[in-house]
Structure formats: C-alpha cells, structure tokens
C-alpha cells in the first residue's frame, strides 16, 4: 500500500485533503474517458442524441461540449 493509501485508511478517509485529491483525480479520469468514448461513438456514426441518451445528459449538453463551432451552422442529426 502506498503512503497516501496507508494514511487514508489510518484516518478512516476522513481527511478532506485525501478525499478531495481523489475527487480531482477521478474527474480528470472521467473527462478523458468521456472524450474517448464520445469520439469513438461519433466515429462509429452515432448521433448526438444517441450518445446523450447513454450518457444521461441532454443532446444540447453533449453537442455544446464536443461539437465544433461550425457544427451549429450545419444541420446536426
């Protein structure tokens, strides 16, 4: 077990610094995973609507985050 993991279990994971660090690392991981999976789905021909449905967000949210600016001028499926 690493020092940090040892520290966390010693402290019963109540140390906010340990917990917050974990959240930050997890967010970074999620951002990267999401970008990989969204890109993969688009490459496979998925629509924004289909991607949004599986991510549990609105079509607008996923489109705004990932689509190119020019995409707004095009008709998006």
């Amino acid at each position: 077990m690493s020092d940090t993991a040892q520290l966390a279990s010693d402290a019963g994971s109540r140390d906010p610094a340990v917990g917050l660090r974990a959240v930050r690392a997890l967010r970074l991981l999620v951002e990267r995973l999401e970008a990989l999976q969204v890109e993969n789905a688009r490459t496979a021909g998925w629509s924004w609507q289909e991607i949004a449905l599986l991510l549990g967000v609105s079509r607008q949210a996923v489109h705004k985050k990932y689509a190119s600016g020019r995409g707004l001028l095009r008709r998006e499926k």
């Binding site: 077990m1 690493s2 020092d3 940090t4 993991a5 966390a8 279990s9 994971s13 340990v18 917990g19 660090r21 974990a22 930050r24 690392a25 997890l26 970074l28 991981l29 990267r32």
Partner: peptide
Amino acid sequence: IDAEALETIGIDL
C-alpha cells in the same frame, strides 16, 4: 493523473 489519490478510493489506475 494522481494514481495514489485514486488508490485511496479503491481505483487501480
């Protein structure tokens, strides 16, 4: 990515 921090919540990066 902070692998040690993830380890504290049981994620093996």
